[in-house]
Deep mutational scan, measured.
Amino acid sequence: MAAGGDHGSPDSYRSPLASRYASPEMCFVFSDRYKFRTWRQLWLWLAEAEQTLGLPITDEQIQEMKSNLENIDFKMAAEEEKRLRHDVMAHVHTFGHCCPKAAGIIHLGATSCYVGDNTDLIILRNALDLLLPKLARVISRLADFAKERASLPTLGFTHFQPAQLTTVGKRCCLWIQDLCMDLQNLKRVRDDLRFRGVKGTTGTQASFLQLFEGDDHKVEQLDKMVTEKAGFKRAFIITGQTYTRKVDIEVLSVLASLGASVHKICTDIRLLANLKEMEEPFEKQQIGSSAMPYKRNPMRSERCCSLARHLMTLVMDPLQTASVQWFERTLDDSANRRICLAEAFLTADTILNTLQNISEGLVVYPKVIERRIRQELPFMATENIIMAMVKAGGSRQDCHEKIRVLSQQAASVVKQEGGDNDLIERIQVDAYFSPIHSQLDHLLDPSSFTGRASQQVQRFLEEEVYPLLKPYESVMKVKAELCL
């Protein structure tokens, strides 16, 4: 049975990233139509530049190519590739079939990587351009969430054990800070992308030097003109047959890092959902379990974690691919890159769409948070109580021993009897502590235990987050809708 299948058929496997999760716009960027249309555009740009620099290419040939950029006979191309065992030459023939007058000058002087690699770089750039505003929107939604809850005390956790208090907004800023680093890295790697350009079979530009009869300047002009037509500021000066596969490492490393950030955020949300302090959106008709109707599973956060793990592992592909590119190139890269580049971007696209949807509907339960604080705060307040007693004339050592005994009794009630923490009640009825009984409410005010959390939130948002989001103001209103 021949390899390949009808990918629109229910009898043929289709990647869930495309069929179930990723956005239509990201799927289109990695589609065959987008790819092969870009090949034709690159052939047109090459012909236009070659004509401008004096090669015998007519206006009629150029116009014929322009008129057929979208006229792609995919069936013919597939048949040609089956016959020739070469995808680029299959599309040269297919393009030439609908451009008979231009057929002889299509791909003039070029090698397969002229269309293959340059198209990949265009796709990487455009895919990054799709991700950047999506990530900015996630940051914006979380920034709104953090600002609104900047002063809401909550129990902090280290080692997932109760620690000092923080605020809900401050905790959210930990998430935002990681995503801001990801946004900066995505922008950097996007701006650092260079075009492969017009380089020939081993990167020496020998074929173009021959076409222009040894004119170095025209060869350099050709490279520059096509690079500018493709919208790049610069091209690699040095290439082998391909652009260095280190570029793929750079791009997928940034995406993998984004995956790590999203995994951490969504894990926190899942843990908070278990504590009943916070939940992701839950639709009115949504079913959490087929057997347990009360369940409210954090399905979206779980999906993000599941896909983020996949995204983090994909960076190993370009690392290994770059390491086995012998001399000017081997074909070890080809099949692998067809999979890992598309999957990385479709996965990143999915987790950003999902995280935006989550961040637009996060639900906080202040009463649950308050109750958990009441359970733990008495123990945390013991040092403040000791200091207040010393100020009232008591002995630190005597007070410490009193607190120690009462704390152990209260802990026994919590752990052995399943009761509430009654340390404060014990202190309130103990005559030894009568000098500070009137101060206990103040000493137990949760806001006095959150330090500068709310001020940190305000400063972080104003100095770091809002300036970073400013270039994306025009796209901030787009909502994230999930079908599944």
Rank of each mutant, 00 (worst) to 15 (best):
G5E: 15
D6P: 07
H7P: 12
S9A: 12
S12Y: 10
Y13N: 12
P16K: 12
L17Q: 12
A18G: 15
S23M: 07
P24M: 13
P24L: 12
E25L: 09
C27S: 10
V29N: 11
F30C: 09
F30A: 04
D32Q: 14
R33S: 08
Y34L: 06
K35R: 15
L42H: 05
L46P: 02
A47K: 03
A49I: 05
T52K: 13
G54V: 01
G54N: 11
P56K: 12
I57A: 05
I57Q: 02
E60W: 08
I62L: 14
E64Y: 08
E64N: 09
N68A: 10
N68Q: 14
I72R: 04
I72K: 03
D73I: 05
D73M: 06
D73L: 06
D73V: 07
F74H: 10
K75E: 13
A78Q: 13
A78G: 12
E79F: 12
E80K: 09
R83S: 13
H86G: 02
D87H: 05
V88F: 04
M89S: 07
A90H: 04
H93C: 15
T94K: 07
G96K: 03
C98Y: 14
C99E: 05
P100R: 10
A102Q: 03
I105Q: 07
I106G: 01
G109F: 01
A110Q: 01
G116N: 14
G116D: 15
N118Q: 02
L128F: 08
L128C: 12
L130A: 09
L132W: 15
L132D: 14
P133N: 12
K134S: 12
R137F: 09
R137S: 15
V138H: 10
S140A: 14
A143D: 04
A143T: 10
A146V: 07
A146Q: 01
S151D: 11
P153C: 13
P153Q: 01
F157L: 08
T158H: 00
P162H: 08
P162S: 10
P162G: 05
Q164A: 11
Q164E: 00
L165D: 00
R171H: 05
W175F: 00
D178E: 13
D178W: 02
L179S: 07
D182L: 03
L183E: 08
N185M: 10
N185T: 11
K187Y: 12
K187W: 09
V189G: 13
R190D: 07
D192S: 13
R194Q: 10
R194L: 08
G197R: 02
V198R: 02
V198I: 15
K199Q: 06
G203I: 00
T204M: 05
T204G: 15
Q205E: 02
Q205W: 00
A206Y: 01
Q210S: 13
Q210T: 15
E213D: 07
G214N: 13
D215G: 08
V219T: 10
V219S: 06
V226S: 03
V226N: 00
T227Q: 10
E228S: 09
K229N: 05
K229L: 09
A230T: 05
F232E: 02
F232K: 02
I238S: 06
T239F: 03
Q241K: 03
Q241I: 00
T244L: 01
I249T: 08
I249F: 09
E250Y: 12
S253G: 13
V254T: 12
V254A: 11
L255K: 03
L255Y: 05
A256G: 12
A256E: 02
A260V: 05
K264Q: 01
C266G: 10
D268Y: 03
D268G: 10
I269A: 04
L271P: 01
L275K: 03
P281S: 14
F282C: 05
Q286L: 01
Q286P: 02
I287V: 06
I287P: 01
G288V: 03
S289D: 01
N297C: 00
N297A: 00
P298H: 01
M299W: 00
R300G: 05
E302W: 02
C304W: 03
A308R: 02
H310S: 09
L311P: 01
M312G: 04
V315G: 08
M316V: 11
M316A: 09
P318A: 09
P318R: 01
Q320A: 10
A322W: 14
V324E: 07
W326R: 03
F327R: 03
R329T: 01
A335H: 02
R337W: 02
L341S: 15
A344D: 04
F345S: 12
L346A: 12
A348R: 02
A348Y: 03
A348T: 14
I351Q: 03
Q356V: 07
I358P: 02
E360K: 03
E360H: 04
L362R: 04
V368K: 05
L377D: 03
L377M: 03
I386L: 04
M389G: 07
V390H: 08
V390L: 04
G394P: 08
S395P: 05
Q397D: 07
C399V: 13
C399P: 04
C399R: 02
H400C: 05
K402V: 06
K402P: 04
K402M: 02
R404K: 13
R404G: 08
L406C: 10
L406R: 07
L406V: 10
S407V: 02
S407R: 00
Q408H: 13
A411D: 04
S412D: 10
S412T: 14
S412M: 10
V413C: 08
V413A: 10
V413T: 14
Q416R: 10
G419A: 10
G419C: 10
N421P: 13
L423G: 03
I424H: 13
I427C: 08
V429L: 15
V429R: 15
S434Q: 12
S434A: 12
I436Y: 05
Q439T: 08
Q439H: 08
L440N: 05
H442M: 13
S447M: 15
F449T: 03
T450Q: 05
T450A: 08
R452C: 14
V457P: 04
R459N: 15
R459K: 11
F460V: 07
F460N: 00
E464Q: 10
V465A: 10
Y466H: 13
L468R: 08
L468Y: 00
L468E: 13
P471Q: 15
V475G: 15
E481C: 14
